[in-house]
Design a protein around this nucleic acid. Sequence first.
DNA 1: CCATCTCCTGACCAATCGGTCAGAAGTTTT
DNA 2: AAAACTTCTGACCGATTGGTCAGGAGATGG
Lengths: 217, 217
Amino acid sequence: MSVKKRSVKPVRRNLAKIRQDNSDHILKVAERLFSDNGYSGTTISAIAKEAGLPKANVLYYFHTKDALYKRVLSNILSIWMLSMNDMTEDQHPRDALRNYIVKKIRQSKEHPHASRIFAAEILHGAPYLREQLETDLKEQFQTTCQVFRHWISKQWMDPINPEHLMFMLWSSTQAYADFQVQSSIMLSKTELDDQDFNEGADLLVRLVLKGCGINQV
Amino acid sequence: MSVKKRSVKPVRRNLAKIRQDNSDHILKVAERLFSDNGYSGTTISAIAKEAGLPKANVLYYFHTKDALYKRVLSNILSIWMLSMNDMTEDQHPRDALRNYIVKKIRQSKEHPHASRIFAAEILHGAPYLREQLETDLKEQFQTTCQVFRHWISKQWMDPINPEHLMFMLWSSTQAYADFQVQSSIMLSKTELDDQDFNEGADLLVRLVLKGCGINQV
DNA sequence: CCATCTCCTGACCAATCGGTCAGAAGTTTT
DNA sequence: AAAACTTCTGACCGATTGGTCAGGAGATGG
């Protein structure tokens, strides 16, 4: 019955860790909400509530909504760019294209929120990303198109339009994140499972390789 | 110098026409703004300003923002569904698929705003469209998948996964509206022109037909 | 020409928005 | 244990939001 008067808070938290943990937590919650409701549809109050913090605390870590959104975006973009530079001239398109498609669909599966925020940004004219699209992504795009042209000149694939092939690869893989809701409705599921992602990847690989006249092993 | 005191407003407008014209005008402006800024990012004041009307007048025609958005959406969906029921068993996939792709890309070109609103809606979980997706669109989806299976059984095309082929067709054609901004940046243009849309359609037709093992004429 | 209906709008409203701030509470340094 | 610093938060702010409303202006039918 007697309540021990022992100190109730022996936790002794660490300042640096507190900052790290709270920032991370807020970013994670914000990513999900921005993904579900868009920039304008997401309020700081909602983020705070979902994170279990007072609104003023969220604004203590990220001084403005804009700054928070930009941090979310830059996190996303760094993940993105990292795993895209993989297609090179010395590879055979058979392997390079398969790897690209598989990796891109895996990204859609593992980072659906990030993927959707990215898509929504572009859908609305890329107000925050335009600069990086015009520099970093464009450079990478042109490099990859050049790789395609190289493969074509080696007759490893049909003479197809490299730019539009890139658009097709991008959109059809991206769709497994962006339109997941629609796809799962069409398949009468609550959400896509691993097999669905695999079947999607298989179909795209097959379609692209055969469609580009790349002889498979 | 003398100002003629002739009646300044001889126009004598017609009530029914006034209602029609204003509603249409508001819907048109709203479609553009919803497309550019999303639902939450678009304010009634902004729509009113852009339409050259007082805010209260917009609300006179459409009692709530929600109702206006739903009207925009239903306009879009009716255009959508109309031109999608085209693939039938008695056609050869060579023609049916080509027609579908060409038509879908033309829609992306001619109704980019509608297309983007639709995409944003799905991206954010289809809060307003879910019911119609679950009934109308799903039914049509399954019908078309059945047509694919029929073509496969007739050995007019390879035994590919019909559902994922539909996803691929949908996303890669849709992209010519949704990601137009990104595409035009990649191609160093201010916007895509007719030739770009044609090249995109050509590539997709070629990729899909050859990829599905459909022998072209 | 008058009664009636529709169209139109400035003024107004409560609610919510992003953001500020003073000061309490907790942690680290001395 | 005291000083210095960071974390935390309730109360508050002006601006904007979607929406209401009373009443004026214009159109219509008899």
